[in-house]
């Protein structure tokens, strides 16, 4: 099993004491699977995604990737897991503004030491980014920036792709195109895709669906 989540509990401090976000979530995913994570605002979708990606620590419960409990790791090893196994695609793209498109796309792959020039070239061409490689993120449209973010994630061939409303900032047509590409490429790399979305239409295109309500699987 690529990803196993067991009894995950997480709360954040609020003005009137701790607010429970996740109340004991368990789930699992294997390579090649696609899973839509849906739910109301505040149901804990993004928090679950962040915990799975090792970006944050649960209060209790476990997240295991390739059998390794990332909660037991130190900061550096967890960073290594993020770098080597996981790729995250954000709604806000979160590209590195000081680097060119080419450098942004190559960034994580080079960081993980798995840069594959042919694959990157293939990716950028299929993403329609070949003409934009020397530009800076701020010179691109939103759809183009999100494509850069997807290319950056997939260039490193992560086992687990996490996407947080990846098309939330895009218009419907662009969103469909981007999602098509993402699904195709995820399938080609035999990665697992966990995508947070509140769009029924997009969720329907995923293999499975997990609906959260008040921090629990509904």
């Amino acid at each position: 099993m690529l990803l196993r989540v067991t009894d995950l509990i997480k709360s954040y401090p609020g003005p009137d004491g701790a607010v429970a976000i996740l109340n004991g979530i368990s789930m699992a995913m294997d390579r090649g699977e696609t899973l839509a994570l849906t739910g109301e605002s505040g149901s804990g979708k993004s928090t679950l995604l962040h915990l799975v990606g090792g970006l944050d620590q649960p209060d209790s419960g476990h997240v295991a990737i390739d059998g390794v409990d990332i909660g037991a790791l130190d900061d550096a090893s967890r960073a290594a897991v993020r770098r080597d196994k996981v790729g995250v695609i954000f709604q806000q793209f979160n590209l590195i503004p000081s680097l060119t498109v080419a450098s942004n796309i190559a960034f994580q792959a080079r960081l993980a030491g798995v840069e594959d020039a042919d694959w990157t070239r293939d990716l950028t061409t299929r993403m329609g980014l070949a003409d934009h490689m020397a530009k800076y993120p701020e010179q691109l449209s939103g759809g183009q920036q999100q494509r850069v973010a997807i290319a950056r994630t997939l260039a490193a061939r992560p086992a687990l792709v996490l996407a947080d409303e990846p098309t939330g900032n895009l218009d419907e047509t662009t969103a469909d195109t981007v999602l098509d590409l993402m699904l195709t490429l995820v399938a080609e790399t035999n990665a697992a895709l966990l995508m947070v979305t509140h769009s029924e239409r997009l969720a329907a295109r995923m293999g499975r669906r997990l609906h959260l309500r008040a921090g629990r699987v509904a």
Binding site: G53, L55, D75, A76, A79, A80, R82, R83, D84, V88, F90, N94, L95, I96, P97, S98, F107, Q108, L111, A112, R152
Partner: peptide, 16 residues
């Protein structure tokens, strides 16, 4: 922070 967060998310520790 917005510039550093993606770098962190992609695998650089805060200490680094």
């Amino acid at each position: 922070l917005p510039q550093l967060a993606p770098v962190w998310a992609q695998g650089l520790t805060r200490a680094r």
